[in-house]
Amino acid sequence: MKALFRYFSSIFSAFKSLWTGMRLTFYYLSHPKTILTQQYPENRKTLYIPEAFKGEVVLIHDENNEHGCTACRMCEMTCPNGTIKITSITEETEDGKKKKILDEWIYNLGMCTFCAQCIEACPQNAIKMQNTFEHSVYDRKELIKKLNHPGSKLKSTKKI
């Protein structure tokens, strides 16, 4: 008797769970505003790209054209593809200390897999991922970008 009850209750629970799924898909079918697809080239003006989309690496510059990169090369070492090349120059400050200063932050977009390990590795939070995505160019060389703006300086940290 118990087995018979289990037999029929399994049928009813099966129909119940199937109906739950069918109701959801019918809701999607009957509510076209739930559609996520974007008709890309046509809707370029109203295109919505999520903020967290990993499009390219940028070096954050503030309004005084100052960045946070201390040329520690952590990102260069973390990068699995050798996308990042950092060159630095040593400068002598007034009090006679030698200091490493960022010369060029070279980013090869063509080799980047957008894993964002460089962003995690950066101790200064100087770089971030931007959600721009229209990167096509006609020459491969144009993909090699210099990320530090011309004339930019290291952000002056407060001395204790």
């Binding site: 898909t25 019918f26 999607y28 079918l29 076209p32 739930t34 559609i35 996520l36 697809t37 008709q39």
Partner: peptide, 10 residues
């Protein structure tokens, strides 16, 4: 079309 709309596609 049915497949697309049910999977949130066009």
């Amino acid at each position: 079309k049915v497949a697309g709309f049910m999977q949130l596609r066009l």
